[in-house]
Amino acid sequence: MEKRIVKKGIRVLLARLGLDAHWRGSIVVAHALRDAGMEVIYIGNQMPKEIVETAIQEDVDIIGLSSLSGNHMILAPEVVKRLREKGTQEIPVVLGGTVPPDDIPILKEAGISGIFGPGSSLKEIIQFISALGKK
């Protein structure tokens, strides 16, 4: 029998890191991703452990993190580390928010696939995520 393997909607998990109190940015991104045809699971403020568990339950193609309170240097690499521990390191992690340029190489080194600091356009973010999701 012929087998078909088809991949349809790109599933994206969006979370705000830790206790980050700024929510507008991530909601705007969530809606933009939906309008670009993706299925977005938005879970608000979460710690790395729950983010990774949710990514597994929801079988997402990408994890998007938002951080506007400077906690990204600890929590974003923690998400990558936990993905590795669970054997699900193939799920790419993208970070957006107030990330100073100096932090970018360190975060990339830690396994974050894409970083979108202040001034990044929605269009850039969408293009990057949809390219990642189609892999």
Binding site: G37, Y42, I43, T54, E58
Partner: peptide, 29 residues
């Protein structure tokens, strides 16, 4: 799903998300 883009905002989970800490609960949107 949005009839226009085909995308979706899956918002139910956020109301039950704290059960993710419980390994006897499994949620799929």
């Amino acid at each position: 799903s949005s009839p226009f883009s085909g995308g979706a905002f899956l918002g139910d989970r956020i109301r039950i998300q704290h059960h993710t800490r419980d390994d006897k609960v499994y949620i799929r949107s």
